[in-house]
């Protein structure tokens, strides 16, 4: 059992209080920060590709429906003649590829996670452990979209790295996010300084008022 004095000494030493840590299952803690393997990454990629495929199908459906506004039915036209009312398959494939690049670029550059990564608890980081830059995310997105088989290198790589990771010096790590990614945690009571002279919770301050705000107020 930790005494209150020891607890406060830990806080002074910069130890993160347990209640501020995300709610991770105990078995997941050792995994966090390690490079993910092929299976998790392949499932995440499949989820992303499936999502893009559904968006492409949805786009086709919308275009098909809009076509009836642009070109209403008449005696000569056929409602089921898709070739006249939707783009060609090659165009839709190109559209899907482009959408995939855009999707991966935006999500990797902003949070490091796509929907597939979020589901599988993965995150893409650069060589510094941070989110990839926009250029880096775009380059990686293009590389992954054009050469998806590069992921298979993570099976034999000594560090679970795909071809894209080796070339671009990125990593995909286990990072089981809890909560909404990209949103900073709101100030909590634990963010305020601890000590006998603190004014936390006093009549003059609200509980969620941070130390910085108190400083500005005074």
């Amino acid at each position: 059992m930790t005494t209150f004095r020891e607890y406060r000494e830990d806080l002074d030493r910069g130890v993160t209080p347990a209640h501020t840590l995300p709610a991770l299952p105990s078995y997941a803690v050792p995994l966090q920060g390690n490079r993910a393997g092929f299976v998790s990454r392949a499932i995440a990629a499949c989820i992303d590709v499936l999502l893009i495929f559904l968006v492409v199908l949805g786009t086709v459906a919308v275009i098909w429906m809009v076509s009836f506004i642009v070109q209403p039915l008449n005696a000569q036209s056929d409602a089921l003649n898709l070739q006249q009312r939707v783009p060609r398959v090659a165009v839709m494939i190109l559209y899907g590829y482009g959408l995939n690049v855009l999707y991966w670029t935006v999500f990797w550059a902003t949070s490091g996670r796509t929907v597939g990564n979020l589901v599988m608890g993965l995150r893409v980081v650069n060589r510094k452990g941070e989110h990839p830059s926009w250029v880096g995310a775009f380059t990686r997105a293009v590389f992954c979209t054009v050469f998806p088989i590069g992921l298979a290198w993570s099976i034999v790589s000594g560090a679970n790295r795909s071809v894209q990771d080796v070339v671009l010096r990125t990593s995909v790590i286990y990072d089981w996010v809890v909560g909404i990614p990209g949103l900073r945690r709101s100030p909590t009571w634990s963010d305020t300084p601890a000590g006998p002279d603190v004014t936390i919770g006093s009549r003059d301050t609200t509980p969620l008022q941070t130390a910085a705000e108190q400083g500005e107020a005074t």
């Binding site: 993160t16 840590l21 995300p22 991770l24 997941a28 803690v29 966090q32 920060g33 390690n34 490079r35 995150r123 980081v125 060589r127 510094k128 452990g129 941070e130 099976i155 034999v156 790589s157 000594g158 560090a159 679970n160 990593s171 790590i173 286990y174 990072d175 089981w176 996010v177 809890v178 990614p181």
Partner: peptide, 22 residues
């Protein structure tokens, strides 16, 4: 794969701190 290639394990440490532990 490691057993087939006689490798003694993988280097899985990645740079940075995971958000789940920070």
């Amino acid at each position: 794969v490691d057993r087939a290639t006689f490798r003694k394990g993988r280097k899985l440490d990645a740079p940075g701190t995971p958000e789940s532990l920070s």
